[in-house]
Nucleic acid binder design. Structure first.
Length: 905
RNA sequence: GGGCGAAUAGCUCAGUUGGUAGAGCGCCUGCUUUACACGCAGGAUGUCAGGGGUUCGAGUCCCUUUUCGCCCACCA
């Protein structure tokens, strides 16, 4: 083996920057991110390509918004998808991961509007066309930024299939779907009370409203009766909406007000007269039991108004200021200001009886954070019930599994309580609603194409509906629109339905549930088989990461500091299924240390291969230690597969970590040194070859989790031994039970126990690691441990730094050793002259306490008839053995105590 | 009001058919041993939130209480 190591192997630290970017480029350029079938077809291997198509694994990325940069939550989401993609790619499936971005109507429009405002402009002065161009440029810029970030994270997605929710093709799909739903009668237009964002001046869907608990005031306002001196006091949190009141309602059962029903009250601050009505909705126990009804500005009031044919008086402009229906001094001021002013006026004029502090839920716009106003306007809606019912009926038989399973409930709950979906937005950035109005007749046409281009409508003039569609109206089609649906092309055929969706729980309603409905409605299939719900990434104090708190973590900064693999490994290792993920920048040193460890082990092995001739795995004779190591790796392989099948990323990361650091580095590589420092070239050669082969296997197992560094190290393995292909397209190790050496595994574990006992004693008495001492092990010849010690004699000596082990059947106590008892074995160490007997006595007494405890527990169980009758016989036997063993230990430990006490210093 | 989740070492968390409690970080001791001091070897640390139940046996299953977090729905 010629020593052809890269210079960086000299470094004890991994220089991530030197290879991460270049590996990404190499993978992408080599077509590794393409589906296997594409790669084979490109090579003209069509038959094999056809076979490859039989089993696919596909993921569509939850498209990030083109508003800004990716945060650590995106990082986690991306990493998990990439682990899945790489894992399944290595399993030989026809894998594709579709990248893409979301035009994010309201969010992006907001961001760009802010920029424009800073320039002293407004979208109105720019005009719609200019504004949209401007937003498009912003979107394009951020699509590139996002792509770069995904590349840095190692995302192995197929960039030839990149998508954008606002691309021409996907826009066509959106129009197509709109028309289909319209034709089915599932889309309607009408005047309704909707959630209105006064900041963006658009309607929102119910799901886009975030409720927060707010402490405000409850105002008790007196409404004088018209025909008497009596007053009716209502309690309200919104005195400013008094101008929109068209009735006062009381509960029909409420005897206090029964006499008033049907009479009129005068609206304070105005001269309007409104009726007192009875409606069962009114809660007699809240406030005064009298409720002012403002149909235009409260959902329930609107419903009550409809029942009683009340007038609907809208008092707001679209920007949330009061309009011309209100008294002069209120016009043009904001709701907030109007509330204060109304309260003041009411007080001045003697209508305000009292105020009380009051906590209630207030809706806010999820994008701009401004309070939502219920606002009467003409909007487009999708009738969701039929879609939801269909989905509820079929989604389960079609097999959709949530991981963790409990999120199914969240999803089902929403489906079962579905409400119609307001899909029109009064924005400029988004898919225009595909409805045109005849400029002369006003007659409307719902069409996939501009009617001006349709011969049937030649000569007529149309204008398109001004509104755009909710962003989610394109997102809910994402799992199939990205493949080219409704076209019946090969991508749809090969990759749809997709395999797994990886997303956060915050968008189960917005997105996951709607995708299922769309999938079933338009493709008669669930759009994905599994849904993996990621936890949220929070700071160490458990707070959500946010710009205002400044506690956010930029994944790029972490990559800069520790490397992409460290970010990936830390997140996947720390991930838990139950709770959110708590991290700060320093957390990532965990992954970094692991990679450094792997790196240094690699360095060490590579340095040993100077004059060694590579050989095949099959030609290497294995000793017990080798078999134990292989056994560990097989077991880990099995555990990784099991964990991955259940989306237990952390489980897989844990077993890999433990195996690499614990079994491999701490034990196997350490023991290998025995051979590596040998004078005999044969011995050295065997060991180096073995290490290289095992190292290769480990790197292959690690690849989905540590793609960059595993690929880099793998590339340094001599050609004769390393995989023919790059790791990214190498076959993932399959668990093979026949390769298990369980017997060797157990024997090695016994050896480890002996080593630990000796090391522990050495350390406990602060005996220098260099100091040698005599070691006699007392064990019966027919005890299985005897043969283990014989077999591993050299290993034990090497690991404990002792010269030799003397085995005996009965020990001659004349040389006053320190004794350690393990099972049926007594280890006698000649260190009495180096240690403090008091210390040893303390330790022995502690041990006696421990054994006493175990004995007590055993006795309790073994004296219990119920236990003997009910417990599994193997468990009973185990207890019996433990009891006997502990008994012997006790006896022997006491003997040792006596010996130490009696022995001369 | 309804639902969900969490509570295990100082901190962050594993602990998937019930059978003698684990890791990492931090802490303490020893070691610059020719891969790694982002290291090695060793060590200390727990009323598994409280209570009750099922069971021979419960961190694990059931009930209940408390605290924290989240979601949904709401009384203006």
């Amino acid at each position: 083996m010629k020593k052809k190591l890269s210079a960086q192997l000299l470094d004890q630290r991994v220089n991530y920057a030197s290879f991460e970017e270049s590996w990404y480029k190499r993978w992408n350029d080599s077509g590794a991110f393409l589906p296997l079938s594409d790669r084979l077809e490109q090579e003209g291997r069509t038959k094999e390509a056809d076979i490859a198509k039989k089993e696919h694994f596909s993921i569509v990325i939850p498209p990030p918004n083109v508003t800004g940069k990716l945060h650590i939550g995106h990082g986690l989401n991306t990493i998990l998808q990439d682990i899945l993609i790489r894992y399944h790619r290595m399993l030989g499936k026809n894998v594709v991961w579709i990248p893409g971005t979301d035009h994010a109507g309201i969010a992006t429009q907001n961001v760009v509007e802010k920029i424009i405002e800073q320039e002293g402009n407004s979208r109105e002065t720019l005009g719609r066309e200019m504004f949209v161009t401007r937003v498009a440029a912003h979107a394009e810029e951020h699509r590139n930024i996002i792509r770069e970030q995904l590349e840095k994270l190692g995302a192995s997605c197929d960039w030839t299939r990149d998508n954008f929710t606002f691309s021409d093709r996907l826009s066509q799909v959106v129009r197509d779907v709109f028309v289909r739903l319209w034709e089915k009668g599932l889309i309607y237009k009408g005047h309704y009370l909707v959630n209105w964002s006064t900041k963006s001046q658009t309607a929102l869907s119910d799901d886009e409203v975030e409720y927060k608990s707010v402490t405000g005031k409850l105002y008790y306002v007196q409404y004088p009766l018209v025909d008497s001196d009596a007053v009716l006091t209502v309690a309200t949190t919104r005195p400013e909406t008094i101008f929109g009141d068209t009735a006062v309602a009381v509960n029909p059962e409420d005897e206090r007000y029964a006499a008033y029903v049907g009479s009129l009250v005068r609206l304070p601050l105005t001269d309007k007269k409104i009726p007192i009505i009875a409606d069962a909705h009114v809660d007699t126990s809240f406030g005064t039991g009298a409720l002012k009804i403002t149909p235009a500005h409260a959902i329930n009031d609107y419903e009550i108004g409809k029942r009683h044919n009340l007038d609907v008086v809208n008092i707001l402009n679209t920007d949330g200021t009061l309009n011309d229906t209100v008294p002069e001094e209120f016009r043009g001021i904001s709701v907030q200001e109007a509330r204060g002013l109304a309260a003041q006026k009411l007080e001045e004029e003697g209508f305000l009886e009292k105020t009380e502090p009051h906590t209630h839920q207030v809706g806010y716009c999820y994008r701009t954070g401004v309070p939502i106003e219920p606002y009467l306007s003409e909007q487009w809606f999708v009738k969701m019930k039929p879609l939801a019912e269909q989905a509820l009926q079929t989604w389960e038989e079609q097999g959709l599994t949530f991981f963790p399973e409990r999120w199914k409930n969240t999803y089902l709950h929403w489906m079962n309580n579905i409400r119609d979906w307001c899909i029109s937005r009064q924005l400029w950035w988004g898919h225009r609603i595909p409805v045109w109005y005849n400029s002369e007749t006003g007659e409307s046409i719902v069409s996939r194409d501009d009617p001006h281009t349709i011969p049937e409508h030649a000569g007529k003039k149309f204008h398109q509906d001004e509104d755009v569609l909710d962003t989610w109206f394109s997102s809910w089609l994402w799992p199939f629109s990205v493949f080219g649906w409704p076209e019946k092309n090969s991508d749809v055929e090969n990759f749809y339905p997709t395999s797994t969706l990886v997303t956060g729980y915050d968008i189960i309603f917005f997105w996951v549930a709607r995708m299922v409905m769309a999938g079933l409605e338009f493709t008669q299939q669930n759009p994905f088989r599994d849904v993996y719900i990621t936890p949220l990434v929070r700071d160490k104090k458990g707070r959500k990461m946010s710009k205002s708190l400044g506690n956010g973590i930029d994944p790029l900064e972490i990559i800069e500091m520790y490397g992409s693999d460290a970010l990936r490994f830390t997140l996947s290792y720390q991930l838990s299924q139950g709770t959110d993920l708590l991290v700060d920048a320093e957390s990532f040193s965990f992954g970094s240390r692991f990679i450094t460890k792997l790196w240094n082990a690699s360095r060490f092995i590579f340095r040993m291969m100077d004059d060694v001739v590579p050989c095949r795995w099959e030609d290497i004779a294995l000793d017990s230690t080798d078999k134990w190591m292989i056994n560990c790796i097989e077991a880990v392989t099995n555990q990784v597969h099991t964990a991955m099948a259940e989306y237990q990323f952390n489980g897989a990361a844990h077993v890999l970590y433990d195996c690499v650091w614990g079994d491999y580095c701490d034990w196997y590589v350490e023991l290998a040194k025995r051979h590596l420092y040998s004078e005999d070239i044969e011995i050295r050669s065997r060991m180096v070859n073995l290490l290289l082969h095992i190292h290769k296997r480990i790197l292959t197992l690690l690849h989905p989790f540590l793609p960059f560094v595993s690929e880099e190290i793998h590339s340094m393995i001599p050609e004769a031994i390393r995989h023919e292909t790059e790791l990214i397209v190498t076959e993932y190790p399959i668990f093979c039970e026949d390769l298990m050496y369980n017997e060797e595994g157990m024997r090695f574990a016994t050896m480890q126990t002996i080593v630990r006992a000796i090391r522990s004693t050495r350390s406990e008495f602060s005996i220098s690691p260099k100091k040698q001492f005599r070691c006699v092990i007392e064990v019966l010849v027919d005890d299985p441990v005897y043969s283990i010690i014989v077999a591993f004699q050299e290993e034990i000596c090497f690991l404990c730094n002792i010269d030799a082990i003397e085995l005996c059947q009965t020990f001659d106590y004349s040389f006053t050793p320190m004794t350690r008892i393990l099972d049926n074995v007594r280890i006698h160490l000649d260190i009495r002259s180096m240690v403090d007997d008091e210390k040893e006595l303390q330790r022995l007494h502690k041990q006696i306490d421990k054994i006493t405890k175990v004995l007590k527990q055993c006795e309790q169980k073994l004296n219990n008839k119920q236990f003997l009758e009910h417990a599994d016989p193997s468990v009973v036997q185990q207890q019996q053995e433990l009891y006997e063993l502990s008994h012997t230990h006790m006896k022997q430990t006491k003997e040792i105590v006596e010996m130490v006490k009696g022995a001369p210093e």
